[in-house]
Design a protein around this nucleic acid. Structure first.
Length: 411
DNA sequence: TCTGGGGTCCTAGGACCC
DNA sequence: TCTGGGGTCCTAGGACCC
């Protein structure tokens, strides 16, 4: 979806179209700004010129989405609000409305599923679609179907999206970025050298800032630079799994299927404080936040019908270092009090001298509520791997040639 | 001017079991 | 003085993605 969070807001406030708008920061902060300027008046009745501006924003937070006019100023996702304010002080700032975003997320995904049922969820604003068995999915290399999907989404939601069509997910993802916004890009296998190889290594989904820095350190800047290296060389520098994957990726190889169903592995809640807090000096405040986080995770679990076995905490210190602790129970739970108690024990195992910037609570090892017994039984029923090893040797022993005696050349 | 929140997956060492 | 081999689970940290 194109500038998804921002586009959702523009549907409500069409007077902002064409202007630099950023979504992000703390909702409370932005709400405060609006209240100060407009009292109880709804934003929909207010002219664009009177919306809260980024230059008046004071506090923590990052940009979630910027409209394309805002991006002209160099403002983008994950950028700190203060830095963004320097680059584009006149940008209008609005908070994320998660409810609304999720509503539109469900709507666009449902629209796609009606046309092409094999869809993989990749977060609120992105999906993989398998065109293979969709009638007409091959026409004009997929362009016809892509156009149809774009139109259907726009008709239903008023939102635009960009689509990349390619032989696999890896290339499709890169292709989807070629023509934003509202773009369609078709990439065939034979376009690898012309369209993919010139791109920066960072464009590969799976190469992040760390791997990019290491690649740059080795003199590799573009995907073609990776492709030109021996597989073994990459394995030497990046490990067996990652190096081999990198080599495959640079050659456009990817055989991952489109996965239509998956179960969650963990659920968590975390919050960054408005100011750094100290475990002793701000004990009361921290305690209240901690309990609230536990209650929210418990609510999430119950609402979605899950129970979990591993309770964990996460904290971020004022110097941005992160510490996590967790503990696995012998029974599943979705109970706030239990989560609070175990998370409290985890907290005791972590250094608390430094001030804290963030606190989080996580529940992992999930099972569907009511199926805990089955989940436990499934674990217990795993076949004994020792027995299987023996079976394999027994089979191999009866089938193989006699073992070399050691005196043949090269034996 | 410091840098959100919600996730997944991988790695590596240690405990523990057979 | 010398001390297996295979496996799983738990825990902590880290890279990466949307």
């Amino acid at each position: 979806m194109d500038a998804f969070f921002a586009s959702v807001e523009l549907l409500r406030y069409p007077q902002l179209r064409g202007l630099p708008v950023v979504i992000g920061g703390g909702r409370r902060k932005v709400d405060e700004m609006v209240r100060e300027r407009h009292g109880g008046r709804p934003l929909s009745e207010i002219p664009a010129a009177e919306f809260p501006l980024l230059k008046d924003y004071v506090g923590r937070g990052v940009i979630t989405t910027a409209t394309y006019p805002a991006r002209q100023f160099g403002v983008g996702s994950a950028m700190g609000m203060m830095k963004a304010a320097k680059l584009c002080p006149q940008a209008i700032v609005l908070p994320v409305d998660f409810e609304e975003v999720r509503r539109f997320s469900r709507a666009f995904k449902a629209t796609i599923a009606e046309i092409a049922p094999v869809v993989e969820d990749r977060g609120v604003d992105e999906v993989y679609i398998d065109f293979t068995d969709v009638p007409g999915g091959q026409r004009e290399g997929g362009r016809v179907l892509a156009r149809l999907i774009q139109k259907a989404i726009f008709d239903r939601t008023g939102l635009t999206c960009s689509i990349g069509v390619a032989p696999n997910k890896l290339i499709a993802k890169m292709a989807s970025e070629f023509n934003k916004p509202k773009g369609i890009s078709i990439v065939h296998e034979e376009d690898l050298q012309t369209l993919i190889w010139p791109l920066a290594v960072r464009k590969i989904n799976g190469i992040g800032p760390k791997a990019e820095a290491r690649l740059h350190g080795l003199g590799l800047k573009t995907i073609s630079d990776i492709a030109a290296r021996e597989r073994d060389w990459l394995v030497e520098h990046f490990g067996r799994a990652y190096g081999a994957w990198m080599h495959d990726a640079s050659w456009g190889r990817d055989d991952r299927p489109v996965v239509t169903e998956s179960e969650p592995v963990s659920m968590s809640r975390e919050t960054t404080f408005e100011r750094d807090l100290h475990a002793v000096r701000d004990r009361a405040e921290l305690g209240a936040i901690f309990t609230d986080l536990c209650e929210r995770v418990a609510q999430d679990l119950q609402r979605k019908g899950y129970v979990g076995k591993t309770i964990g905490i996460k904290l971020r210190y004022d110097d941005f270092r992160i510490a996590t602790r967790d503990q696995t129970l012998d029974t599943f739970t979705a109970d706030a009090k239990t989560i609070r108690r175990v998370a409290g024990q985890c907290l005791k195992r972590v250094p608390l001298e430094r001030r804290l910037r963030l606190l989080g609570v996580r529940v992992g090892k999930l099972a569907r509520a009511g199926e805990e017994a089955a989940a436990t039984a499934l674990q217990a029923r795993e076949p004994d791997p020792g027995d299987r090893t023996l079976d394999l040797f027994a089979a191999a022993g009866s089938l193989q040639e006699p073992r070399p005696t050691g005196d043949e050349p090269g034996g």
